[in-house]
Amino acid sequence: MLAVMRRTSFAQWPCSIARTMDLLGDWWTPLVLREAFYGIRRFDAFQESLGIARNTLTDRLRRLVEEGLLEKRPYQTEPVRHDYVLTEKGRDFYGVLLVMNRWGDRWLSGEAGPPVTMRHEACGQDTHAEVVCAACGEPMTADNTHPRMGPGYPPHLAERPDVQERFAG
């Protein structure tokens, strides 16, 4: 008898990184979102550009619609077909993809350089994402930025010594 492995849900964890990973679920989801930012809107176009199985793509698009990152808009009635359009929540994910792209360019590009560059239309320059403090504009790094419990941290966990130690400092 084959044992079924269930994926652990991080949806209720007191961590926005864990909750985001729970929403993403796998590597296909950010790639589907990337394609949406490239202007892909139709199922067949997603499938062709990604080379993804139809059932996998159906599942990822359904999940992104349920989570409010994409909206289904009918463009044909016989048979019914939909465009998948980024919502405000979906468009807000762009910064996540830019930071992932920047990291990949720095650490995974070969000698030829980055496979894709980003042009900032406001200044007309090819550039890359930087994570900066919204309050002062200075770069945020692992050396100068530390987590603290926020107002949404569950009180019953905040009392645990191991949790207090994690947020000490």
Rank of each mutant, 00 (worst) to 15 (best):
V132N: 06
V116K: 01
I17R: 05
F10Q: 09
R54S: 14
R42H: 15
G68F: 14
I52L: 13
D162W: 07
L97N: 02
G39D: 12
E121C: 06
T20K: 00
L33R: 03
K89I: 14
R62S: 11
L64G: 07
E130F: 01
T145N: 06
P14T: 05
D22R: 00
I40D: 09
A36K: 03
A134R: 10
Q47V: 14
V131F: 08
E165H: 01
E121L: 13
D83T: 08
P161A: 04
D143L: 10
A112C: 04
G169V: 08
P79F: 02
G25Q: 02
V163I: 13
H120W: 15
Q125D: 10
P155R: 06
A3W: 07
V96G: 03
C136I: 14
N101I: 04
G150S: 01
G152M: 06
L69F: 11
V99K: 06
D162K: 01
R60I: 13
E78I: 12
G39P: 04
T127R: 13
P161D: 10
D44G: 14
L108N: 14
L97F: 03
R54G: 13
L24G: 02
R60V: 15
R6M: 08
R160P: 12
F43V: 01
G51Q: 00
D92P: 02
R160Q: 11
V131S: 00
M5A: 09
A135D: 09
E130C: 15
H156P: 10
A3R: 05
L98E: 12
R42D: 15
T145A: 10
Y38A: 09
R54E: 15
R41Q: 15
G152Q: 06
K89C: 03
E130D: 14
S49V: 11
Y38N: 05
L33S: 02
P161S: 08
H156D: 15
D26H: 00
P147H: 01
